[in-house]
Design a binder for these strands. Structure first.
Lengths: 192, 192
DNA sequence: ATTTTTTATTGACCGTGGTCAATTTTTGAT
DNA sequence: ATCAAAAATTGACCACGGTCAATAAAAAAT
């Protein structure tokens, strides 16, 4: 009982994603409407949902691609060993995450797997972010009383916290980079 | 040009919130439908939106109340001075935050003020959480090389991280409390 | 009291995400 | 080539949050 995939399926799917990417390029992620995507792609609405569970599933795919590209960039830098170089290396990733509030919210919501064995593109990206940071930290000038894995989880937590505060009217005084720098210095190289 | 508020307004608003609370008590937050709330309250749909900007605004009010009650509980404990007692004191708060995935997501989304001078009930609660933890940390057995304010922001960040991972299929092995304990020990009382 | 102005309520209507039985297209067997 | 089974597509339809011009009720002015 194999379910053969027709080549037209792949074509339709590609057309949908292409159309969606065009819409996003023009108006951003938040303004994307399924109706506009299917019209641009020249298919019926039902077709969209035959290809993607829901609108968020398409968002996950598109944002996952962008995130992976940003992570490629991050990994292409010379291996950072200090707090400030780590932050600099992650700049493309964080930049995209903060590009739109809608993007940030959606990324956070899907950063963990939603169901059992149901790990989506965004959760995968967060896992990759984590692994990259672990790798960097393993031979960086940081505290060694705690495993690199935990340090990396902390980096992620602090990055999200700094991004959150960036969107927050109350704490908009300090810049994202300055705040993250202070957090990570205290976390990775404690003085007491 | 004062806009006088009629007493019937307050009554209608109270009826709406009461109705909403009943619905939530029965089916949880996620299942709440505006239609059901207005039916229970015996008003028209338009009235709902004359009282609350949108459905989320009502959610914010209800969750804010619950959160404040949890924070009252937290503050009623004998002032915690160690990592484990801090975690224990915050248990009611974290418990509510993790009670439903929908609740967690919404809280995170509104944890920062959404607009300038537009600080809502949930953001206020997060501010209170922060203040309470600062107060505790000020005379707790923790590192002093970093201001208590930053330590408290870290506590919040790690708590959110631990809650996120709790909802995540990948990392469900470690319990929330154990994970948060490890985080906070490393953050508040570093050994190197 | 009567009129005017302000405030609150109403419900028909809209936008948008999502569903599903019916239809069309493709595939594979004969 | 023909036909039956499987897969993909369609579009009318639904659910639900949210809007707004019309109406009703209350408060203020006369």
């Amino acid at each position: 009982m194999q379910k053969t995939v027709q080549k037209r399926t792949l074509k339709t799917r590609a057309r949908l994603i292409e159309a969606a990417e065009g819409v996003v390029a023009q108006n951003g992620y938040e303004a994307l409407r399924v109706e506009q995507v299917v019209q641009t792609a020249g298919v019926a609405k039902g077709t969209f949902f035959a290809h993607f569970r829901d609108k968020d599933a398409l968002m996950e795919i598109m944002m996952g691609q962008r995130l992976n590209a940003c992570l490629d960039q991050a990994e292409a830098t010379t291996r950072p060993t200090t707090v400030s170089t780590i932050i600099a290396a992650l700049e493309p990733v964080h930049g995209f995450m903060m590009s739109e509030r809608y993007v940030f919210d959606l990324l956070i919501r899907y950063s963990g797997a939603t169901g059992i064995a149901e790990i989506g593109p965004i959760a995968t990206c967060f896992e990759r972010y984590f692994r990259v940071v672990v790798m960097w930290l393993e031979d960086a000038q940081v505290r060694k009383d705690v495993p690199a894995e935990m340090l990396a989880e902390g980096v992620q937590a602090f990055a999200i916290q700094a991004m959150s505060l960036k969107f927050c009217a109350l704490h908009s005084a300090t810049s994202f980079t300055d705040r993250l720098d202070a957090y990570l210095t205290a976390w990775l190289t404690p003085a007491a």
